[in-house]
C-alpha cells in the first residue's frame, strides 16, 4: 500500500533525524562542561588550606585533564566506560546508577500523582463550569501555581521537619538501618514524603489548570451533546467522551516533565538533601567533576529525545487523527 511505504519512509527519516540529534547532544555533553570557567583543581584547592606550588598545580591539572578528544570520548561511551569521578575516584557509572533510582522514585511518583489528581480535579471542575467550587478551585490553583517550589519546599521543611519533626529533613532512607523489607519501605516513604509533597504541590496546579482549560474546549464540542442526547451516564460522558479528548495537553506536559526530570529535581533534591541525580549534578558542577557532569548532562538530553520519540506514539493512540495528518 502506498500509504504504508510512505509511513515506513517517514519512520526511517525520523530515526535518521533523531540519531543526528543524539550525536549532536553527545558532542554538546562533551563540549559544554569543558567551557565552564575554572577546573577541578582550582575548584578543589581554592578553598582548601593547602597552598600548591605552580609545579604541583600543573602536575595535578595535567593528571585531571587528560583530554584525548571527542573521538576517544565517543569510543568510551560506546563501551560503557564512563570514566572515573575526579572527586570520588569511583566509576561514574556507580555514582550515576546509585542516584538514578532515587530520582526516578521521586520524580516518577510526583509526576504520576500530580497528573492523576490534576486531571481528575480538572475534569470535574470543568464539568461544573460556572459553579462556586470551580471558580474557587481555579483561583486557588492559579495562586498555588505562582508559588515556586523552592518556597513550598522550604516552608514544608521548616514546619514538618524542624518544628513538628514529623518527617526527616534529609536523605532518602535511614543510614545503617536494620529491619525487614516492609520496614525499609516505610522508612523510604517517610523520607520521600516531604520532597514528594513539595513536587506534587508544584506540579499539580499546572496540571489542573491545563486539564480544565483543555476540557472547557472539549465540552463545547458537538459530540458531547451527541453523547448527552444518547442518554449516556454522566460519568461516562465525562471520562470516555470528554476527558479522553482532553488528554493531549496533559500527556504532553507529563512527557516534558519526565524529559526534564533532572533539572526539575535539582532544587527539591538540594533542599531535602535527597541523593538523586540533581544532587549529584549539583555537587559535580561545584567541584568541576567533568566525567560526572558529562554523564548526567548526556543522560538528561537523551531522555528528552526518547520521551519526544515515545510521545509521538502515545499521541497516535490518544488521537487517531494524528496518524493521518501529513
Amino acid at each position: 500500500m502506498a500509504t504504508g511505504t510512505n509511513q515506513a519512509a517517514g519512520r526511517f527519516w525520523q530515526v535518521i533525524t533523531f540519531s543526528l540529534a543524539a550525536l549532536a547532544m553527545i558532542y554538546l555533553s562533551y563540549l559544554l562542561p569543558r567551557l565552564l570557567p575554572g577546573d577541578f583543581v582550582t575548584a578543589t584547592y581554592a578553598s582548601a588550606n593547602v597552598t600548591l606550588t605552580a609545579e604541583q598545580e600543573a602536575g595535578l591539572r595535567a593528571y585531571y585533564t587528560q583530554d584525548k578528544g571527542f573521538g576517544d570520548y565517543l569510543l568510551k561511551l560506546a563501551t560503557l566506560d564512563w570514566g572515573y569521578s575526579y572527586a570520588f575516584l569511583t566509576p561514574v557509572s556507580d555514582l550515576f546508577f546509585g542516584a538514578l533510582p532515587w530520582t526516578i522514585l521521586l520524580l516518577g511518583s510526583a509526576n504520576l500523582i500530580s497528573m492523576f489528581i490534576g486531571f481528575v480535579t480538572g475534569v470535574e471542575a470543568a464539568w461544573r463550569h460556572g459553579s462556586r467550587t470551580e471558580k474557587g478551585l481555579v483561583g486557588g490553583m492559579t495562586v498555588l501555581e505562582g508559588i515556586p517550589e523552592i518556597c513550598t519546599g522550604v516552608i514544608l521543611l521548616v514546619v514538618f521537619a524542624y518544628n513538628l519533626q514529623w518527617f526527616p529533613a534529609a536523605g532518602a532512607e535511614t543510614a545503617y538501618a536494620e529491619g525487614g523489607f516492609f520496614q525499609r519501605l516505610i522508612d523510604m516513604a517517610h523520607h520521600l514524603a516531604l520532597p514528594l509533597t513539595t513536587l506534587v504541590l508544584a506540579y499539580f496546579p499546572g496540571n489542573f489548570l491545563l486539564t480544565r482549560n483543555s476540557m472547557m474546549m472539549v465540552i463545547k464540542a458537538h459530540y458531547i451533546d451527541t453523547a448527552r442526547a444518547k442518554g449516556i451516564f454522566p460519568r461516562r460522558i465525562r471520562y470516555a467522551h470528554a476527558a479522553r479528548n482532553a488528554l493531549q495537553p496533559i500527556v504532553t506536559r507529563f512527557g516534558l516533565r519526565l524529559a526534564f526530570m533532572i533539572t526539575g529535581a535539582l532544587v527539591v533534591e538540594r533542599i531535602n538533601s535527597y541523593p538523586g541525580l540533581g544532587t549529584l549534578l549539583f555537587n559535580a558542577i561545584q567541584t568541576r567533576d567533568l566525567p560526572v557532569i558529562q554523564a548526567v548532562v548526556l543522560f538528561s538530553s537523551l531522555i528528552v529525545l526518547c520521551v519526544i520519540l515515545g510521545m509521538e506514539g502515545v499521541y497516535r493512540i490518544i488521537d487517531p487523527r494524528i496518524g493521518n495528518a501529513r
Binding site: 458537538h222 459530540y223 444518547k230 442518554g231 487517531p320
Partner: peptide
C-alpha cells in the same frame, strides 16, 4: 433520550467523538 427520542445533529462529523 435515544430510547424514545433520537436526533441526527447537524454539522456532520463534529458530532462524532474523534477518539
Amino acid at each position: 433520550r435515544w430510547k424514545s427520542v433520537s436526533m441526527v445533529f447537524q454539522n456532520g462529523a463534529a458530532n462524532l467523538n474523534p477518539a
